[in-house]
Nucleic acid binder design. Structure first.
Lengths: 158, 158
DNA sequence: TGAGTCAGTTCAAAAAACAAACTTGAGGCG
DNA sequence: CGCCTCAAGTTTGTTTTTTGAACTGACTCA
């Protein structure tokens, strides 16, 4: 399988990675989530090279994750905003952030970013739960089952 | 910022991406979650080139996400298994999968993979919730706040 | 007129990925 | 013994991507 054929895969993980699975895309989206919406702003925050930033933004727009909105004319300038499809990536962003906080931070290091839930006004951690029983999901209690495949394959640690 | 300096960033998203943020790593981990633990097995499932697979597995072991376990000697052969740190990536995997299911699948297409929760035995969707009020998190109700930074920046769509 | 801003594009060099063949240390077959 | 097979890589040469630096174009401001 080549990288550019990934969007044709039947697997949803592969299809998602065909959009956000490269070295820079999620960092660009992090900037957008932080409301850094303009080319120059993202370029100087991220220190990404300009050609890569331009190419990635073009792809994110064509994939329907971002949209270009003009904020002035003469000359026309635009900024990049999340579409609903892009906003739906927030659980992915929170999951990445939480893994980094819990697994990559030397003990005692304070977190650089935290999350606040506007409806309850608390600083919180994101917890993945089951849509049916509403309990938090422990890795060992989750199975990934392939449709049509014979038994079932566990999403199980060790 | 160059890619290899990413693990030095203070941001947890950047640190996480320094481990799993390239074109192949999450696909390799998908295979591991599906219990395809051996080199040949992963190589033929993924059609990844052998040098890239070898390099990624080496890095995942050195990052503490996988560990090598011998399953025979003479000649010594090993398989790759998740550590606890690796198993902790399951919310990331579920979030990626769920985004693909809901945003990338043409309407009416059945899902290739689904999730089952062993404790309640139901097929479920993963739902990200607030650790404080336990409500599901809508993208617009979540803010990312930078420590020390002046106001607060919203993790807000449009 | 000259300097500055923003959103890119162009171009050459360096790094990474690709494809195919090769290696290493076994066991099995005739 | 010589030859084939297997698993888990490594080597080699080619192609693609990324990097870094400079350049462009449409405008504003002094």
């Amino acid at each position: 399988m080549r990288w550019n054929e990934l969007d044709q895969e039947p697997c949803s993980i592969a299809r998602t990675l065909s959009v956000i699975g490269d070295r820079w895309t999620m960092l660009i989206l992090r900037e957008i989530f932080f409301r850094h919406r303009r080319f120059e702003e993202m370029q100087s925050e991220l220190n990404i090279t300009r050609p890569v930033l331009a190419q990635r933004l073009r792809k994110l727009v064509s994939d329907g994750v971002l949209r270009k909105v003009a904020y002035q004319s003469q000359p026309t300038r635009h900024e990049y905003r999340l579409t609903d499809k892009g906003a739906a990536l927030s659980p992915v962003m929170m999951a990445l952030m939480h893994w980094g906080d819990t697994q990559m931070l030397p003990a005692g290091t304070p977190r650089a970013v935290h999350l606040r839930h506007c409806t309850c006004n608390a600083q919180f951690d994101p917890v993945m739960t089951c849509s049916v029983c509403h309990e938090p999901l422990a890795p060992k209690d989750v199975r990934m089952e392939r449709r049509g495949s014979v038994p079932s394959l566990e999403l199980n640690p060790l």
